Computed example of a mutant assay.
Amino acid sequence: MDSLDVPALLDHHCHSVVVADLADDALAGLLTESDRPPAPGTSPFDSALGLAVRRWCPPALGLPCHAPAADYLARRRELGAPEATRRLLAAAALDTCLVDAGLTTAAGHQLLPLSEFAEAAGARVREVVRLESVAQAVSATAQAWPLAVREALAAAAAGAVAVKSVLAYRYGLAVPAERPAPAAVVAAAGEWLRAGRGRLTDPVLLHHLLWTALEVCADLGLPLQLHTGFGDPDLTLHRADPSLLTDFVRAAEPSGVPLVLLHGYPYHRQAAWLAQAFPRVYTDLGLTASYVGPRAAAVLGEMLELAPFGKLLFSTDAYGLPELYLVGAAQFRHGLGALLAGWRADGACSAADAQGLARQVAADNARCLYGL
Rank of each mutant, 00 (worst) to 15 (best):
M1G: 07
A8E: 13
D11Y: 05
H13S: 02
H15S: 00
S16P: 00
D25R: 14
A26V: 07
G29L: 11
D35A: 04
S43I: 13
L49D: 07
L51N: 05
A52W: 01
R55V: 00
A60K: 12
L63E: 13
L63R: 11
C65Q: 15
A67L: 09
A67W: 06
A74H: 11
A74L: 15
R75C: 06
R77S: 06
L79D: 05
A81K: 06
A84R: 11
A84C: 10
R86K: 13
R87A: 10
L89K: 06
L89E: 07
L94W: 01
L94D: 02
C97S: 11
A101L: 03
A101P: 00
G102T: 10
G102A: 06
L103K: 07
T104R: 08
A107N: 03
Q110W: 05
L111G: 08
L112R: 03
L112T: 03
P113V: 14
S115Q: 13
F117I: 14
F117T: 11
E119F: 04
A120T: 12
E127H: 02
V138L: 09
V138S: 06
S139A: 13
L147W: 03
L147M: 05
R150Q: 14
A152K: 06
A155Y: 05
A158L: 10
A160Q: 08
K164M: 02
L167S: 03
G172F: 07
G172L: 12
G172D: 00
A174V: 15
A174T: 15
A177P: 10
E178K: 11
A181P: 02
A187T: 15
A187L: 11
A188K: 04
E191D: 15
L193H: 08
L193R: 11
R194P: 01
G198S: 04
L200W: 08
H207K: 01
H207A: 03
H207I: 10
H208Q: 02
H208A: 12
L209G: 02
L210N: 04
W211K: 05
W211S: 07
V216Y: 00
C217H: 07
L222F: 07
G229E: 08
D232L: 01
P233D: 14
D234N: 07
P254S: 05
G256Y: 04
P258H: 13
L259I: 15
L262Y: 05
G264A: 15
P266M: 08
Q270F: 06
A271P: 04
W273E: 11
L274F: 08
Q276A: 15
P279Q: 03
P279R: 12
D284K: 09
G286V: 11
A297E: 13
V299Q: 00
P308M: 10
F309S: 12
G310C: 09
F314R: 09
S315R: 01
P322N: 03
E323L: 08
G328F: 14
Q331T: 13
H334I: 09
G335S: 02
G335V: 12
L336G: 00
G342L: 06
D346R: 14
C349K: 01
S350W: 05
A351H: 09
A351D: 14
G356E: 12
A358F: 05
Q360W: 08
A362Q: 12
A366E: 03
L369K: 13
L372G: 13
